[in-house]
Amino acid sequence: MPYPNYPDALIARVLRGVKTIAMVGASPNESRPSYFAMKYLLDKGFKIIPVNPGQAGGEILGQRAYARVSDLQAPVDMVDIFRNSEAAGAITDEVIANKDRLGVKVLWMQLSVINEDAAKRADAAGLTVIMNRCPKIEYGRLSGEIGWYGVNRRVIDNRKHAAFNKGGSLARG
């Protein structure tokens, strides 16, 4: 089980609760993992705002890109950091500085991104923090979809699979 050990209920609450996600480090290159994740989450009905200085003013997957978190307009429910663990520190501080203006409730760091100090600061600022996870994989795991690829979801549930419908919801079918 990956570190840290988050309860499924926490991850599900986050993914059900957020609508707009700023994705820092989103790439326009269709072979990059960030492109895969953005494509998937858009497909599930989330609003995704790409944040990438090199792409500012342009579009990724039809979504207008911004240079930095401080350039964004409210509402932004969650910031997903698709950068390395070290870079996550400064981005976290920028998120904390803008959280009230933007309405940020969740700071998410991608799979392999772990920054304990940044996580502590974000937690102290009242943000829900998820590290070392991918929202695409977690959505796929909790909705059941990723089971179609034989992935061990570590879920046992006597109810029907969660709805796979568009709309960004993990609501029960």
Binding site: P7, R153, I156
Partner: peptide, 18 residues
């Protein structure tokens, strides 16, 4: 992410009502 026992996994893992 409960840590289910072997007998439970043998019956349930991967399966969910259609």
């Amino acid at each position: 992410m409960a840590d289910y026992g072997f007998h439970t996994l043998a019956v349930h893992a991967g399966a969910q009502p259609d």
